[in-house]
Computed example of a mutant assay.
Amino acid sequence: MSNISISPSQPQPQPPLPTPSPFSFSVASTRWGSRRPPIHVANLFLRFLALVLSSASALSLAAPKSSLRKQPTTFRDYPELVYCFVVNILVFVYAAYQLFKGICDIVHRGIFISDMVSDYISLIFDQLAGYLLVSASSVAIPVIQQMSNGNPLWKAAMVSVCMSFASFLVIAFTALLSGYRFCKRIIW
């Protein structure tokens, strides 16, 4: 017989299990050299864009170009434009919060809010903000159609509705990203 020795085989170490979500970062798993996925950077950019667009929409209603008329009309005379203004302020505050949270997550390595709670908050409030923006834009359009074209408030309201709709499109993309992150968390 040949000298073949049969030795008990050593169990091979198993590779580590993947994290439940490619978007979850724990304090223990991050290092200075690690990079966040590009989806986080895109999310931060979209949040910043929503912040800028919603603030531009609110500011265009609040400070229309003044005319030399005796009694210029303001957006406070139209409840639909007040609704549009309030919704844009709320979206501005929400976008500022999400931007602050995203920057704090990068700087402090995800200690501000847990990933699971953040995914739920983002999913719910992105959809709510999108609904409010599209409803505010659609409510303001009939009022704009009733105004005269030479009115400075007409121009300001047109700019506000356009910026509000652009902000809706950006929030819709962030809602899609939030839904993707939420589904990844549930699936894994």
Rank of each mutant, 00 (worst) to 15 (best):
S167E: 07
N149M: 13
S5G: 10
A95M: 03
I141Y: 06
A136I: 01
P64F: 01
S122P: 08
F48W: 11
A28Q: 12
P142Q: 07
F48T: 12
R69I: 11
R36N: 10
Q14V: 01
F45L: 12
I4F: 08
S29F: 03
A129Q: 02
K184H: 12
F168N: 03
Q145R: 14
L46M: 04
A157M: 01
S135F: 12
L132A: 02
I103C: 10
L176Q: 00
S122W: 03
R185T: 07
L99T: 05
V41C: 11
V170I: 06
V86P: 04
S138K: 11
N43M: 09
I6K: 02
Q145I: 07
L59S: 12
N43F: 09
P37H: 11
P64R: 04
S164E: 07
I89S: 03
Y180D: 04
L59Q: 08
V161I: 12
P152F: 01
F100S: 15
F92W: 02
F165G: 03
A63Q: 06
P79T: 00
M1A: 13
K65P: 10
F168I: 05
V161W: 05
Q146R: 11
S118N: 10
G110N: 05
V82F: 05
L68V: 14
P142N: 01
F173R: 07
S7I: 14
W32D: 13
F85Y: 07
R35C: 11
W32F: 13
